[in-house]
């Protein structure tokens, strides 16, 4: 069912994602704070003493690049820019580029608080990555394919969220964690004066924080083809269903953010390894048994 998309989709992808990320950021910001990107464009870059400026800039640029590359396999309706045969792993690999990106942005400026932010993200990565990989594996297992198009196709009747709820929840949790956003925002937290983003100014800052919103939108959007049936749905056209479902996932994340204080990794990592990971393994096991029995 997944048809090849025309080439111009590849060109349209970054601006479309940027618009979606900006809309999400606006919806999340308190009234009047939406002009932040304008402000960054007007600002100068900052320099700190003995900084490794190329590395900091690399980190800042890598984050939006990672998000957009990951979005290549994200289908709108039933079409994506490129429906790679290993699309699920591709998404995972591109999202993993956030690890070096945040750490480099924290390391580069040679400032203690921003470095703490960078290291916090690595700790966070260790906590969320294994359960997240298991959640992605579970969805791929249910479809018997790593191709995102095939995963969507396998949900023609029954959405995966109905029989893999744990994997879906883990994916949502990981989406917030990999975008270091909401309850997982400690790598750029206020308690470390902005953390990894704390010393970035001007274009670097815009690229880094914008990349963060892109990553959140892409990771939340990935929940739609993996667990929420992609473009499947009654009445509306497929692309419309994708948009509606993505917006719903993002709205749920925004709602959750208002309800929760931030989660610190010195507490959360233990739970991630002792509770979330075994749960995700158990979910994968259940799905494997069901698939074998079919």
């Amino acid at each position: 069912m997944a048809e090849a998309a025309p080439l111009w989709w590849a060109l349209a992808l970054p601006p479309v994602l940027a618009v979606a990320a900006a809309a999400t950021a606006l919806a999340a910001a308190p009234a009047g704070h939406g002009v932040a990107p304008l402000r960054e464009l007007a600002r100068r870059r900052r320099r700190t003493v003995a900084a490794d400026a190329p590395l900091a800039t690399l980190g800042a640029v890598l984050l939006p690049l990672a998000a957009v590359s990951g979005a290549v396999v994200l289908p709108l309706g039933f079409r994506s820019v490129s429906d790679l045969a290993v699309g699920v792993v591709w998404f995972n690999a591109m999202a993993a580029l956030a690890w070096p990106a945040v750490w480099l942005a924290g390391w580069g400026p040679n400032s203690a608080l921003s470095l703490i932010g960078g290291y916090r993200f690595l700790a966070q990565g260790l906590a969320y990555e294994v359960p997240h990989m298991l959640a992605l594996t579970t969805a791929a297992l249910g479809a018997g394919s790593l191709r995102v198009g095939a995963v969507v196709e396998a949900q023609r009747g029954l959405w995966f969220v109905t029989w893999m709820p744990v994997a879906f929840a883990v994916h949502l949790l990981s989406a917030a964690a990999m975008a270091f956003w909401g309850p997982f925002d400690r790598p750029v937290g206020r308690d470390v004066a902005g953390g990894a983003a704390g010393e970035l100014g001007g274009a670097d800052r815009l690229s880094f924080l914008g990349g963060r919103w892109l990553l959140l939108v892409v990771a939340a959007g990935m929940a739609v083809p993996l667990f929420l049936g992609g473009g499947h749905g009654p009445l509306l056209p497929a692309w419309c269903w994708t948009l509606v479902k993505t917006a719903a996932v993002l709205a749920a994340l925004l709602w959750l953010r208002r309800r929760l204080p931030a989660v610190r990794m010195d507490r959360f990592a233990a739970v991630a390894w002792t509770v979330v990971t075994p749960l995700a393994v158990a979910q994968a096991l259940v799905v494997a048994v069901v698939v074998l029995g079919r």
Partner: peptide
């Protein structure tokens, strides 16, 4: 070998991020 290639990128990214530490 698409799968192996992408997994190499994925694993090396995570490993190098930690190895830097």
């Amino acid at each position: 070998l698409d799968y192996l290639g992408v997994v190499i990128v994925l694993m090396m990214t995570l490993e190098m991020a930690l190895m830097a530490v």
